[in-house]
Simulated assay, not measured.
Amino acid sequence: MPWAVEAVDDYVTNIRPRYRASTGAVLWPTERGDRLQARKIEDRFAEYSGALGLGSSLVPHCPRHSQVTHQIEDGADPAFVQRQVGHRYASTTALHTGMSG
């Protein structure tokens, strides 16, 4: 999506510098400056989705599937999408693709 680069640039320019550890290799630091851990994301996501009644089948990995699907539906080269998401095999990318209706 074309707006993604602009959104990340805005975050890096305007939000990330407000964190204690705004320098270094950590793109998404916690409020304490530590590296954001996958388990914490999963726990918080489950808490929010449960409170909203969205069910347990919605997990943080779902946006990755959506991103792959939208790119393929928008006509992106499947080989480009495969490289972008870091899949070794096209069959893995195909599993992430669920055509929307």
Results as ranks from 00 to 15, higher is better:
P2M: 03
P2N: 04
W3H: 14
A4D: 01
E6I: 11
A7C: 01
A7V: 02
D10L: 12
Y11E: 06
Y11Q: 07
V12C: 04
V12E: 11
T13I: 01
R16K: 13
P17E: 11
R18H: 15
Y19G: 12
Y19F: 15
R20Y: 11
T23D: 08
G24F: 05
G24I: 04
A25N: 14
V26L: 12
V26R: 08
L27A: 10
E31D: 14
R32E: 09
G33S: 11
G33R: 08
G33Q: 04
L36F: 14
K40Q: 11
E42R: 10
E42K: 10
R44I: 08
R44C: 06
E47Y: 07
Y48K: 12
Y48N: 09
Y48Q: 06
S49R: 15
G50W: 05
A51T: 01
A51F: 02
L52D: 00
L52T: 00
L54F: 11
G55Q: 07
G55N: 09
S56V: 01
L58F: 11
V59F: 03
P60I: 15
P60H: 15
P63I: 09
H65V: 09
S66N: 08
V68E: 06
V68Y: 05
T69A: 04
Q71V: 00
I72C: 03
D74G: 13
G75I: 01
G75H: 00
A76G: 00
A76L: 03
A76R: 01
D77E: 00
D77M: 01
P78L: 07
F80R: 03
F80N: 03
V81T: 00
V81P: 01
R83H: 01
R83V: 02
Q84L: 05
G86H: 07
H87E: 10
Y89M: 14
A90K: 00
S91I: 08
T92M: 13
T92Y: 12
T93A: 05
T93R: 05
A94Q: 13
A94H: 13
A94Y: 10
A94S: 14
A94E: 13
G98M: 10
M99G: 00
S100V: 03
